[in-house]
């Protein structure tokens, strides 16, 4: 059977780095202490269910907590520097606008299909003389058959 301590340590890696650095060691220590006190397969299974449930609740809670702290910090920093924030937003808006414009052109010219029925059957014939293959490499008779 796998070492329970190692399994629990693996789960701890799912916590945000800051929380793990701060509390990883006491969490591990507490797990070892509690696990050692429990004897028997059933109580240990119950203990594992409790530990995994606790992790399943507390890991997302800590991730959200850190995320909200980071967002709050970013908002505070940007609010203190309105000029650079405005410039960054303007650059972002221009970049998004330019990308959208280029994509619209590429989409209309290259990606979207032509406004005809069965556009894959459309061919272009040009500059050929009777008896010699034309630009498409067909004689007129071959070209007519292929169409």
């Amino acid at each position: 059977m796998a070492d329970p301590h190692r399994i629990y340590r693996w789960f701890l890696r799912l916590y945000p780095a800051r929380f793990r650095e701060e509390y990883g060691t006491p969490l591990e220590r507490q797990f070892v202490d509690e696990y050692r006190e429990i004897q028997g397969a059933r109580p240990r299974a119950r203990f594992w269910i409790g530990a995994v449930t606790d992790l399943a609740i507390s890991i997302p809670t800590e991730i959200l907590h850190e995320l909200s702290q980071d967002v709050g910090y970013a908002v505070r920093v940007y609010r203190r520097r309105p000029l650079s924030t405005g410039l960054a937003l303007m650059a972002l808006a221009l970049a998004i606008g330019a990308t959208t414009g280029v994509f619209s052109v590429v989409n209309a010219l290259l990606i979207r299909s032509l406004p005809f029925r069965d556009p894959q059957r459309l061919v272009e014939l040009q500059g050929f003389r009777l008896g010699t293959p034309g630009a498409a490499g067909f004689t007129p008779g071959e070209a007519a058959r292929r169409i």
């Binding site: 969490l27 507490q30 449930t53 609740i57 507390s58």
Partner: peptide
């Protein structure tokens, strides 16, 4: 019965 994660989350 506080789980370890809940305990240290509250402490934090």
């Amino acid at each position: 019965n506080l789980g370890s994660g809940a305990l240290y989350g509250s402490i934090n």
